[in-house]
């Protein structure tokens, strides 16, 4: 479809197609809007709120808000940077995240965002919740300590794998990821080849027995900050 919608992000003119969300149009134009629960191809979720931008002065999630002609979007402002730092820090203190022991370190989008935002340690109060690790499946492990409730596995399992392995149960601070079985993941039809396993932005869903295939220090976010690929892809086009 023709890119006949024109709007601005931080003053930069962006062309977009009707039906695109702000985050999609921004990405195509080489502008990175930080995000966690958003994954191209999955239905928009709007849960992590890291992609919060202001559209004509009103806050909204860039992953759910469709573009409109003449829309004025603020993205990289001090107010929104502070807000995103808060959200990432809130996620850190909500769970139990020990980057130094985590196989996902260097691949982890939560960790990478913290580095991109210059977060050394959260200012908020660690809650150290007691959470479970589900090792029941022969090839996949679920570490609830690291789950940030982004719903990427839930949506991927349904939309891409054509299964319903994951869903949330409970509400508020008791909300957690559950599986489609009374017992645990081992009792579901989850397979290691499911796209859902790779959809996790953190180390909550991992494949067993392939740890540390890429040495720490040479992993994607060890080398370049998260979002760089989006920013440089457009630069190369020019």
């Amino acid at each position: 479809m023709a890119n006949d919608i024109s709007f601005t992000i931080d003053g930069v003119e962006v062309a977009a197609a009707p039906g695109q969300t702000i985050i999609e149009a921004a990405e195509a134009a080489g502008i990175y809007i930080p995000r966690l629960c958003h994954k191209p191809g999955l239905e928009p979720f709007g849960g992590c709120r890291v992609c919060t931008v202001k559209s004509n002065g009103r806050p909204c999630s860039a992953c759910t808000q469709p573009v409109a002609p003449g829309m004025v979007v603020e993205n990289d402002t001090e107010e929104l940077r502070a807000l995103r730092r808060d959200l990432v820090e809130l996620l850190f203190v909500e769970g139990n995240h020990f980057c130094m022991f985590c196989e996902k370190s260097g691949h982890c989008e939560l960790q990478a965002l913290a580095y991109r935002f210059g977060i050394a340690a959260p200012r908020f109060d660690y809650t150290w919740p007691a959470r479970q690790v589900d090792m029941s499946h022969p090839d996949i492990l679920v570490d609830h300590n690291r789950c940030i409730l982004c719903g990427r596995c839930v949506r991927t399992s349904r939309q891409v794998d054509g299964k319903n392995v994951f869903q949330f149960v409970g509400r508020g601070h008791e909300k957690r990821l559950a599986v489609n079985a009374e017992a645990d993941l081992g009792a579901t039809d989850a397979a290691v080849t499911d796209a859902a396993v790779g959809a996790c932005p953190v180390g909550a869903l991992l494949k067993k027995r392939i740890g540390f295939a890429t040495p720490v220090g040479r992993r994607p976010y060890d080398e370049r900050p998260i979002g760089t690929d989006i920013e440089t892809a457009a630069a190369r086009k020019e």
Partner: peptide, 22 residues
């Protein structure tokens, strides 16, 4: 609010608990 938050989004789910602790 901490009990009644649906838990869908980060600021409400985690923020209410943090404010309560403070």
């Amino acid at each position: 609010f901490a009990d009644e938050s649906c838990g869908f989004c980060t600021p409400c789910r985690v923020g209410t608990v943090q404010l309560k602790r403070l």
